[in-house]
Design a protein around this nucleic acid. Sequence first.
DNA 1: GCAAGTGATGGTAGCGCTACCATTGTTTGG
DNA 2: CCAAACAATGGTAGCGCTACCATCACTTGC
Lengths: 343, 343
Amino acid sequence: MKPRSRRSGGRPTIADVAKRAGVGAITVSRALREPERVSEDLRRQIARVVDELGYVPDPNARALASARADVIGVLVPSLTNNVFAEVVRGIYDGLDDSRLQIQLGNTHYSGLEEERLLRVFLSQRPSALVVSGIDQTPAARKLLEEAGCPVVQIMEIGPDPVDMMIGFSHFEGGRTVTRHLVDAGYRKIGFIGARMDPRSQRRLSGYRAVMERAGLFDPRLITTTTTPSSVSLGRELLRDALAKVPTLDAVFCNNDDLALGVLFECHRAAIDVPGKIGIAGFNDLDMTGVAFPSLTSLRTHRYEIGRRAISMVRATIAGERPEQPVVDLGFELKQRESTARTA
Amino acid sequence: MKPRSRRSGGRPTIADVAKRAGVGAITVSRALREPERVSEDLRRQIARVVDELGYVPDPNARALASARADVIGVLVPSLTNNVFAEVVRGIYDGLDDSRLQIQLGNTHYSGLEEERLLRVFLSQRPSALVVSGIDQTPAARKLLEEAGCPVVQIMEIGPDPVDMMIGFSHFEGGRTVTRHLVDAGYRKIGFIGARMDPRSQRRLSGYRAVMERAGLFDPRLITTTTTPSSVSLGRELLRDALAKVPTLDAVFCNNDDLALGVLFECHRAAIDVPGKIGIAGFNDLDMTGVAFPSLTSLRTHRYEIGRRAISMVRATIAGERPEQPVVDLGFELKQRESTARTA
DNA sequence: GCAAGTGATGGTAGCGCTACCATTGTTTGG
DNA sequence: CCAAACAATGGTAGCGCTACCATCACTTGC
């Protein structure tokens, strides 16, 4: 760790490059940002000097001068949740070699924390903002509307986008899984949910809509908690559910971690799956297909959501307003052994 | 999305606050950064005006003027790997309400990508750098040594820290798990590994050291691939391993995802666990304790690593050089049903 | 043949903040 | 009582870059 003088520690500046290349500083700046506006000759010349000197532009100076940082603020509710981890991976992959940077914030499923982080991010004048879900606080929504940059709401779609949106309907997802269970012949279909953030709530609504329509609804079939989701919690919730309704014959798990916990508990208690109890998960993580018996789940396109959110942002920044500001990526039901009743 | 003029879009600046509070700009700056150097009176006065105006300092201007951004660059090899997701969570939690920001980079297990990201990060003059592992390329190592800021290498410890280090010995981890399997009475103990990054390699070395010492080593017991790890891969690798050595009686899985895949494959092939085959994992994710049979694993303190890495950085920035520049957080063997042979 | 346009380049003036030094009043030690 | 130290505050001069406007050579169209 060696000290650094105020004067940039000897790092070359744009002026150094300009002098050495025998051009004005502004031409160097342009050659780097809008090469097509600089003649072939100078461009090559400048590129050579940049290489020789190892010049790297200072992003802070750039941001200060242009009142715009090459940063995309991204807010997700969790980093350990595998689903969001994949969204974030898609986001990073979507950058390619653009000079954009990601500023990641973890809201911990709190609207107020989202609001706070939004203010922090906005102080940097980001090039774009990506937020999760559609349930921002009114203040957060106002901040987004006045952000002065493209905004993408991800993971979910709804009627009233701030700007752009990409995701799918959790209500429809919940309906699809539940309908599958009903069609498979299950009747006492429980719902098991952890965290119960707004998206989980809408899956539950989908479940309820189908169950009521089929005349199968019973509030005692629903077992939820606001505790964060985990595999071990799945086990506990199944126990609770069975204690309430011993005749339970299927469970729709709010996510695959819970489903895995339920599956293990069934093994442990020697409950036959899918004969005695059917199990369906949500998201379709890698393990669902490998589990024994393999787990039915609803595949969601989370990596794609991240990736395309960044595409939309980049298109907007480049001035091409995307034709579709709201993109529904849908989902795909993966029927597997855990709901294949041999009845 | 409304346009923004060059002049800050009307956002209040430090000069606005200074004028309104009837003090010099520099005093406002100090009141915000080193409150103890400003008198009680003025401090309160300034705080009031800051509130009234909704003043938020511009981090870019601050970084430019002070040649130091309040940013910690963090480089991890993967974001979807649950282990690193927890490290990252620990890192974010370690920030508390310091004004530091995290700049996250994903190296995808590539030394060259790490080098590239390091250069990008350094162009911002970060307050600190956190990198994963101890196997930087020579060029990356040089960049770290000349970074002019605190550097923490995480997840692993080794003999030659760039600056600070926090983690544990993967070699010892590998030894501990293998010794446990030998002690439990297993003899044909296979090693199953995916990705095989340097840390996995050292776990394998630990395995090999114990096996050779016990006179049990056989290269055919080792089944690895450079493919990224996943649950489904665990299943495939177990099949491969059994094809090579049908008498295999235990497997040490490089991580818990693989162990879960192995467990499911055993279920599917009706192989008794732990009677016919013992299974041990690595990292001790939440599901290991819930699995049926529950999985033996080696608990690693990854959240703690992230959290304490940031503590060390903050202490260093505050001028208190931590007494211990290299911290070994160790690990903890969790013996469970999957290796409890009833011989 | 000339006004108007176009393309390439450069000079100037900041962006909003803090490092550095200067200034003022107040305390301290001998 | 006075030099020296200190504590609190402020002025000035940038940090490295780009927006804005100007300049200059060349077209181009009529």
